[in-house]
Computed example of a mutant assay.
Amino acid sequence: MSTSTTTGRVALVTGGSGGIGQAVVERLIADGYSVAVHYAGNKAKAETLVEKIAASGGSAIAIGGDVADENAMQAAFDQTETAFGGIDVVVNTAGIMLLSPIATLSLDDLDRMHRTNIRGSFVVSQLAANRVRTGGAIINFSTSITRTELPSYGAYAASKAAVEALTLILARELRGKDITVNAVAPGPTATPLFLDGKDEATIERLTKMAPLERLGQPEDIAETVAFLAGPARWVNGQTIFTNGGMA
């Protein structure tokens, strides 16, 4: 259901055709936002989501591009502003996770994660810092693995720790602009990104890590994003660990 505080606001969601990204898009649409659904490779999925939104009376467009390519992302911001008149919220859910012990990690995989997770977050944050309207919000994505230090997640956790640092410093740099900048750090969440390559025993073990003894759902994470995007005007320069109580 839309609210008077969010109706008319515009959001750009990178990775908007993915598991958490799609849930974020649908949650913001329910709150009355117009949403640009960004995709990197799955154009058909993004366009299907946009068609579904239009059929239910919502307003959305699909836009493509590599988040680490500043020209492609400038075009994505331009397209969003052309379609909706401006941008109030940028949610950067785009990211990749490649797991390996540090001792044996392929440096090519390290570079791939660095490009998408760190450079991509920097490019999107830099553009958002210059384009988001007064009263807006920038929301990046970290991970609860930065706290739990699970084996094989070293390079991924390092990339997300960099995103946290970028996010918290940007919040201070935007002093006086009335734009909040925060990071969401999900715990284990039932998405293809998380489930891919894990056997049932591993999934069961990770499920038990939270006191609530279940995996997070994309909708759980989207609730936190909606809070930061709209009503949470006094939450700024923070990393919000959305993980069901996992340490």
Results as ranks from 00 to 15, higher is better:
S4T: 15
T5C: 08
G8F: 10
V13K: 02
G19R: 01
G32V: 08
A36M: 08
Y39G: 01
G41D: 14
K45C: 04
D66F: 00
D69A: 08
E70A: 15
M73I: 10
Q74E: 15
A75V: 09
T82N: 15
A83F: 08
G85E: 10
G86P: 05
G86N: 08
I87Y: 05
D88E: 04
V89S: 07
I96C: 06
M97D: 06
L98P: 03
S100Y: 04
S100E: 10
P101N: 13
D108E: 14
R115Y: 04
N117F: 01
G120F: 07
S121T: 15
V123W: 01
S125V: 04
S125G: 15
R133Y: 03
T143A: 08
T146M: 09
T146V: 13
P151F: 00
A161V: 10
V163K: 01
V163R: 02
V163W: 02
V163G: 05
L166D: 03
L166G: 08
E173P: 10
R175F: 14
A183R: 00
A190T: 06
T191E: 07
T191M: 01
L193P: 03
L193D: 03
F194A: 04
K198E: 05
A201K: 14
T202F: 10
P211R: 09
P211T: 06
L212R: 12
L212M: 15
R214V: 05
R214Q: 07
G216M: 08
E223V: 09
V235D: 13
Q238D: 11
N243A: 12
M246V: 12
